[in-house]
């Protein structure tokens, strides 16, 4: 029975990551009606950016920017729970950016990149055939994947994780520190997203722009900006998910997010592509179901069960569990 609860906890932790990526998919689908196949690759590339800024610092190529020298003069290394906040000295003597700084920097870059992609690539293909936009996201997928392959190579690289220690024993179940961290961050992000969309004016504006562009334009909302914001947010959330996924698998590689994206799709469809709650429930269900199948049936069945289940559920509920029904008009 202990293994059961262990697997449940691990499944919930993976599921939280699936749910994060599924939420990103749902944002983009609600805002633009596009199923974004490039979501996982965008996250992967941004995670790589996080990897490259997490490497030992050397700013020798810009002499006046040697930050670590300036900051080290102060000899000020604040820490939170043992994690260096800004700069940390590694055991090999090199200086690296602290985890928090890496996360902030990477998410900021991802935010800008998501917006740029929407403005430069998605917008020219909007308002035409829906299939065109989907093909465009496939194009982004191919470009980002091959640039990552070319720039960083196919070999998985170690990824920094803030907590790498032993598993925490909760009595009923044990959970690795990183999985616990991922679960906590995932749940916190979901809560933050909920608050943003339900309790802030900006979130309301984004929802309005997605729901009824014409009416919200008349109400003075800049719908174009809201769409860009939606893509930016989705990219940032996906990037965060990628940074949590990378340490829990073999490390970061160009195909890091491919499997995760497929499960996130499964999660999003399971819950209904236009429902944020559905994405969360679907993500957890897919994550827990996957670990259970691997544990009790066999790992070669995990994908078959996951995708077979999706087809089955779509047969019963054609728009997912929480999705709103499609209304056809003449």
């Amino acid at each position: 029975m202990e293994t059961f609860f262990d697997q449940l906890a691990i499944g919930a932790s993976t599921g939280a990551l699936y749910a994060l990526l599924a939420l990103a998919l749902v944002f983009i689908f609600r805002a633009t009606d596009i199923v974004n196949f490039a979501q996982g690759e965008m996250a992967m590339f941004n995670t790589y950016i996080g990897w490259s800024i997490s490497r030992p610092l050397s700013f020798s190529w810009i002499p006046f920017l040697s930050i670590e020298r300036h900051i080290n003069i102060l000899n000020w290394h604040p820490e939170v729970f043992g994690i260096p906040l800004f700069l940390g000295s590694e055991s090999d003597g090199s200086t690296r950016l602290g985890y928090l700084l890496i996360v902030i920097g990477t998410v900021a870059i991802a935010f800008v990149m998501g917006g740029l992609i929407e403005r430069l690539i998605i917008r020219p293909s909007e308002g035409k055939n829906l299939l065109n936009a989907v093909i465009v996201t496939l194009g982004i997928f191919a470009i980002v994947n091959s640039i990552a392959n070319w720039r960083y190579g196919p070999v998985p690289q170690n990824y920094p994780a803030p907590f790498k220690g032993n598993a925490v024993d909760f009595g009923l179940f044990k959970l690795g520190q990183h999985s616990l961290f991922a679960l906590i961050v995932g749940v916190a992000m979901m809560f933050a997203i909920y608050v943003f969309f339900q309790r802030t004016k900006l979130g309301l504006a984004v929802r309005a722009a997605a729901l009824n562009p014409q009416a919200s334009e008349l109400m003075g909302i800049n719908t174009g900006q809201m769409l860009t914001l939606g893509w930016s947010l989705a990219a940032a959330i996906g990037c965060l998910a990628g940074m949590l996924v990378a340490p829990s698998v073999a490390g970061i590689s160009p195909n890091l997010m491919l499997g995760v994206l497929l499960y996130a799709f499964a999660a999003a469809v399971l819950g209904g592509l236009d429902s944020a709650l559905g994405a969360v429930v679907g993500g957890l269900a897919v994550g827990i179901g996957q670990t259970m199948v691997v544990q009790y049936i066999g790992s070669e069945w995990s994908d078959i069960v996951a995708f077979g289940l999706i087809i089955g559920i779509l047969m019963v509920k054609p728009t997912g569990i929480f999705g709103s029904p499609v209304v056809k008009k003449v």
Partner: peptide
């Protein structure tokens, strides 16, 4: 017939994903 738009796309993707996996089953 029951599915439309992106849901049909994803259901068919799922079918395409499952097919090679089923071939590899013992």
């Amino acid at each position: 017939l029951r599915l439309a738009g992106p849901y049909l796309a994803i259901a068919t993707v799922a079918a395409a994903l499952v097919f090679p996996l089923v071939l590899k089953l013992d």
